[in-house]
Simulated assay, not measured.
Amino acid sequence: MREINNITEKFLIDQIVLYYGTYDRFGNKYDEQMAYRRLEQLRVQKGLKDADEAVDYMIAVLDSGEAKLVS
């Protein structure tokens, strides 16, 4: 199993999930914008070509159990 060595990656993934969850629940535009901003930061950090690739990467990390989300 690959470890997440970069705390920033874990932070960004946690933030994306939290902001999107809050947006989904309350519909706050700020949370939507922040989720996309964090997704863009993850995309740039990992050298991915677009937001779809960043989402796929994030899902793969979450599915593999390598990232523990804030509960």
Rank of each mutant, 00 (worst) to 15 (best):
E40Y: 11
D56H: 07
L12G: 03
Y19W: 03
D56W: 08
I4V: 15
A51I: 11
E40C: 10
E32V: 01
F26D: 07
D31L: 02
A67Y: 03
V44S: 06
L18W: 06
R25K: 11
Y36M: 12
G65C: 07
E53V: 07
G47N: 13
L18R: 10
D52G: 14
A54T: 04
Q15Y: 09
M58Q: 00
A35S: 15
I4M: 09
S64K: 14
R37G: 05
E53I: 05
A60C: 07
L48A: 12
I7Q: 09
R38W: 12
A60D: 13
I59K: 08
K49T: 12
Q15G: 03
A60L: 14
G47Y: 11
R37K: 14
F26G: 04
V44M: 06
Q33M: 06
K68T: 12
L62T: 04
L12Y: 01
K29N: 07
D52K: 05
M58V: 02
V70K: 07
E3R: 15
A60G: 09
Q45H: 13
L62Y: 03
T22R: 09
K46Y: 06
D14Y: 04
A67V: 08
V61A: 11
I13W: 03
M34H: 06
F11D: 00
D14F: 00
Y23V: 05
D52Q: 10
D24E: 14
Y57F: 14
V55R: 01
A51E: 13
D24C: 06
D24F: 08
Y19R: 08
G65N: 08
Q33Y: 00
S71M: 12
V61G: 00
M1L: 09
K49F: 07
D31C: 13
S64M: 10
R25F: 02
Y36W: 14
K29E: 14
D31K: 03
S71A: 14
V44P: 02
Y30T: 12
N5L: 14
Y36T: 00
Q33N: 09
D52A: 09
E9L: 07
I16F: 05
M58L: 12
A51D: 13
Y20I: 00
N5G: 14
